[in-house]
Design a protein around this nucleic acid. Structure first.
Length: 490
RNA sequence: CGGGGUGUAGCGCAGUUGGCAGCGCACUGCGUUUGGGACGCAGGAGUCGGCGGUUCAAGUCCGCCCACCCCGACCA
């Protein structure tokens, strides 16, 4: 396991310590979210309040995704949160998938509504309605729109960030003239998610296709990126759907092609939600708290001033503020000037919040022209070095880059160490108990179902990258041409 | 929606046979402290989850309800 013990030289008070990840991963997660002040329980069942620190993390995520969306030609728009209930009923699979979890408004302005309004669980239907209005000619295509909003799904069982009644996300909706274009779009967005996850969040992911039983209600084909959490379970971290012509037909999105004949458009949708914050927590966090990837951390470095006497206080504070000014040009940095708290308390506090780099400056540093740099991903003394004031921005920058890469490498190693290619079904059962099993699958839903009944594990995805050759289905022994990733999922 | 658990100060909990509502942490003020979770003194803080019942008297006993958490079936 990657869970570190409490760093050397630290003796936390028992009630201040998180439950260890090995002891109770779920409780570790719940308490960490609350204590790091990412989110809190709202007074409405299953809903959360995203607190400023959590929202700052979400803003960093939105910033990076939005940049990528715009770079690939997408534009943002706003669509209503209310959707006529009848819209949800137009696409057969879509209704079946979403009706059990709809919130419906029946009264408006004190009067019963003629048609109930669903609070959007996702916007495919209202998008379909509007695109039908907007699309007349092949010249109107493609439409590449993204929405930043929140949606509501009445989930039976909720957990902060991972599955809440209302959650924040982005949903992209595109319409294209050809099947090929739609397919390219679907895969392009999957790649953007994968690139974001690995390079910004340091979360290694497997790009793959969902099996029919796991695909989005109404999609022709669903792709997803799957990540392994610190307890070996899988988290679907983003999805990209090729909707084929299903919604185009249900909502009559038609255009005249160059030969002047009516054609149905091909549409896609793709999303990443606040669930991803859960992935960051569960992939990187340790027993002392969060570990945020430097590129997304709301605060990349925190300066903790240390003093004994009053005259030291002013000198240390002055230097700390000066260094902050210098670092602030390039990095998100802050000085912890809170009075009446010991440095030790502050160290633990910022570690709980996952700030990647801590800069300590005290009287000894003042005399030497140095600071102590502590990296969050290596606990205790091991992660501490000394750096000169001169060139500090460069030192901090290098350290942040190093941490970013180290986090990705560590997460990848953890995933690989917990991924097996079991030789037989018995081995398979063991493999999915502690992580992923990558096994040949014949493609039959019955084999998938048997695995689920036997082990609670599901096909997380059929990876896009496949080995050469063929094998025998792990379950039924018939010929199989693809390997699938099996695992227990959140 | 089934199974289990918990509801007492912001958090964690104690509360005996029914008899004045408590402890630790956090919080406020003052002072001393500050290189890995400081200390002293003085304070503030409660619809004991809700409703009803038994009783002279209910946090405690009885009934009903609600909320939340955990475990299972459905989902980003």
């Amino acid at each position: 396991m990657r869970g570190q013990s409490i760093p050397e030289g630290v003796t936390p008070m028992p009630e201040d310590r998180l439950p260890s990840r090995a002891e109770d991963f779920s409780e570790w997660y719940n308490q960490l979210v609350l204590r790091a002040e990412l989110a809190d329980y709202a007074p409405v069942r299953g809903c959360m309040v995203v607190r400023p620190y959590g929202w700052a993390l979400w803003e960093a995520i939105t910033r990076e995704l939005d940049r990528r969306f715009k770079a690939t030609g997408h534009v943002n728009a706003g669509f209503p949160m209310f959707i006529p209930k009848s819209f949800l009923e137009k696409e057969k699979e879509h209704v079946e998938g979403f009706s059990p979890e709809l919130a419906v408004v029946t009264i408006g302005g004190g009067e019963e509504l003629e048609e109930p309004l669903a609070v959007r669980p996702t916007s495919e239907t209202i998008i379909g309605h509007m695109y039908a209005k907007w699309v007349k000619s092949y010249r109107d295509l493609p439409i590449l729109i993204n929405l930043w909003n929140s949606v509501v799904r009445w989930e039976k069982r909720t957990k902060l960030f991972l599955r809440t009644t209302e959650f924040y996300w982005q949903e992209g909706h595109t319409a294209h003239a050809t099947a090929q274009e739609a397919d390219e779009e679907t895969l392009r967005m999957l790649d953007i998610y994968a690139d974001f996850a690995e390079n910004e969040a340091a979360v290694p992911v497997i790009r793959g296709r969902k099996s029919d039983s796991e695909k989005f209600a109404g999609a022709a084909c669903t792709y997803a990126i799957e990540a392994m959490m610190g307890d070996g379970k899988a988290l679907q971290s983003a999805t990209s759907h090729n909707l084929g012509q299903n919604f185009a037909k249900a909502f009559n999105i038609q255009y005249l092609d160059e030969q002047n004949s009516q054609q149905y458009a091909w549409t896609t949708s793709w999303g990443l939600s606040t669930r991803f914050i859960g992935a960051i927590i569960m992939v990187h966090g340790d027993d002392t708290g969060l570990i945020l990837p430097p590129r997304l951390a709301p605060t990349q470095a925190v300066i903790v001033p240390i003093w004994r006497k009053e005259e030291e206080k002013s000198a240390v504070t002055e230097k700390a503020l000066q260094l902050e000014q210098e670092l602030r040009q390039t990095y998100r940095v802050r000085v912890d000037l809170r009075d009446g708290l010991t440095p030790g308390y502050k160290f633990n506090d910022w570690e709980m919040r996952g700030v990647p780099v801590r800069i300590e400056i005290g009287p000894r540093d003042l005399a030497a022209g140095t600071v102590a740099l502590a990296r969050r991903d290596r606990p205790g003394r091991e992660g501490k070095t000394t750096a000169a004031w001169d060139g500090l921005p460069q030192s901090v920058g290098a350290l942040l880059d190093e941490i970013q890469l180290a986090l990705l490498a560590r997460a990848k190693k953890f995933r690989d160490d917990h991924t097996q290619d079991p030789a037989d079904y018995d081995g398979f059962r063991g493999a999915v108990e502690q992580g992923f099993a990558v096994s040949w699958w014949c493609g039959d839903a019955a084999c998938e179902e048997k695995v689920k009944e036997d082990t609670k594990a599901t096909i997380r995805c059929i990876p896009l990258e496949q080995p050469d050759g063929k094998g025998r289905c792990l379950v039924c022994g018939k010929d199989a041409s693809r390997k699938a990733v099996f695992g227990k999922a959140y």
